[in-house]
Simulated assay, not measured.
Amino acid sequence: MEFQDRLAALAAKVKNQATAIGTEEATKNAFVMPFISTILGYDVFDPLEVIPEFTADVGTKKGEKVDYAIVRDGEVQILIECKASLGQLKIEHASQLFRYFSVTNARLAALTNGVVWEFYTDLDAPNRMDSKPFLVLDLLDIDETLIPEIQKLTKDSFDLDSIISAAGELKYVGALKREIAKQFREPSDEWIKFFTSRVYEGAFTQKVRDQFTALVGKATRQFLTESVNDRLKSALGVTSAPLNNASVSSEPVVAEDLDRDTEIETTLEELEGYQIVKAIACGEVKPQRITQRDAKSYFAVLLDDNNRKPIARLHFNGKQKFLGLLDPEKNETRHALESLEQIYQHAEAIREAVRRYA
């Protein structure tokens, strides 16, 4: 099995079992040891490769232990500290890693709850572990750009010099990506003010702030949708249709319109689900004919932007997500989704809906 396939298999296991794992010990057995063995390639039962409960007395701290130490050529290379899978990782959890980092030869340390893996090194000061990770791997949302870097940590491909040399860029690029994602989800005052100042020449009053808080959020969501649409069209070899006799008007912000627009919150999951339905439907009609409308109760995917031609409905507002499919009499059947990929299981019903209207 290829490295990426092994990573995907473990990610699927974590997704299915994470909520059932309640203790640190269970997390180690279910997620951490499989990661060390199947992903990194070290024998967890060979003390010459993996030392559990690794002890190295530090100053007045005697008998403290790090959960695992990975050894290569007789030297400790990676220290691993574990927490329960249901808990959020915090830098306070890494106290042993900080102390052990300075008294061992290890240049790498990992803090994990089995779901998220935070990897640290000593970029800021030699032999002193950084307070921020240079690489964060979330098994529930794997960033594929990080896979080659994770592979450098494996037994067969371990390359400490390459890892350290790439760590500086990884650290800041990863942090920037996470901050950008955070701003897209919940724009901060600084983000709102920055963009407002680029398009609005008046004073940045509280009223203007309130108006543009909604507008920046709306523009962000539309930008993401259009970017994904453009990539989908490019992948399908489709060019955008020209706008014949189309005009674009600009009007002042009207409070009533603003209130109406901001009552509906379009989520990234809804947009991702829409793109999956659209990709399926494009097997029957041109991509530009597949449109979407968000409503309070569901997110609709339509043919020709016509409410009388519903292809599917995404009910993503609750804890349980559903894909709604309608028969010729417009009777809706909801199908529970454990993941967005399960939409593909209903591909034929989606295509049939498109054929029915087209």
Results as ranks from 00 to 15, higher is better:
4 Q>M: 13
116 V>Q: 01
89 L>P: 04
171 K>S: 11
39 I>S: 07
35 F>E: 07
243 L>S: 11
178 R>T: 07
331 N>V: 06
89 L>H: 13
351 R>I: 03
176 L>R: 02
262 T>W: 00
211 Q>Y: 07
263 E>T: 01
161 D>V: 12
306 N>P: 04
267 T>G: 00
95 S>Y: 11
301 V>L: 01
52 P>F: 09
37 S>Y: 10
323 L>F: 10
347 A>G: 02
290 I>Q: 02
98 F>S: 13
196 T>E: 08
36 I>R: 05
32 V>H: 10
211 Q>H: 09
185 R>V: 02
230 D>V: 07
324 G>P: 03
225 T>S: 00
175 A>Q: 14
109 A>K: 12
165 S>E: 13
6 R>T: 08
358 A>H: 12
136 V>T: 08
293 R>C: 01
340 L>M: 15
253 V>F: 09
305 D>F: 13
198 R>F: 07
79 L>V: 09
148 P>M: 02
244 N>Y: 10
6 R>W: 04
348 E>K: 15
215 L>S: 01
15 K>T: 10
131 S>F: 06
173 V>G: 01
187 P>R: 02
45 F>L: 11
10 L>F: 06
356 R>K: 15
132 K>F: 12
162 S>G: 14
261 D>K: 01
328 P>M: 13
16 N>G: 13
38 T>K: 06
148 P>V: 01
156 D>N: 10
134 F>I: 06
217 G>Q: 03
208 V>F: 11
106 A>V: 04
111 L>M: 15
227 S>L: 08
233 K>C: 09
312 A>H: 05
93 H>Y: 15
162 S>W: 06
28 K>W: 05
175 A>D: 13
240 S>F: 07
64 E>C: 04
172 Y>I: 08
106 A>G: 05
16 N>Q: 15
145 T>V: 02
19 T>L: 15
234 S>Y: 00
108 L>S: 07
208 V>G: 11
337 L>V: 10
227 S>P: 00
152 K>T: 10
66 V>C: 07
99 R>Q: 14
342 Q>Y: 10
39 I>E: 02
174 G>L: 04
174 G>N: 08
146 L>K: 13
171 K>M: 07
103 V>R: 12
78 I>P: 03
207 K>T: 12
71 V>C: 09
205 T>N: 13
319 K>E: 14
261 D>N: 01
139 L>R: 04
138 D>G: 04
334 R>L: 15
142 I>A: 02
291 T>K: 03
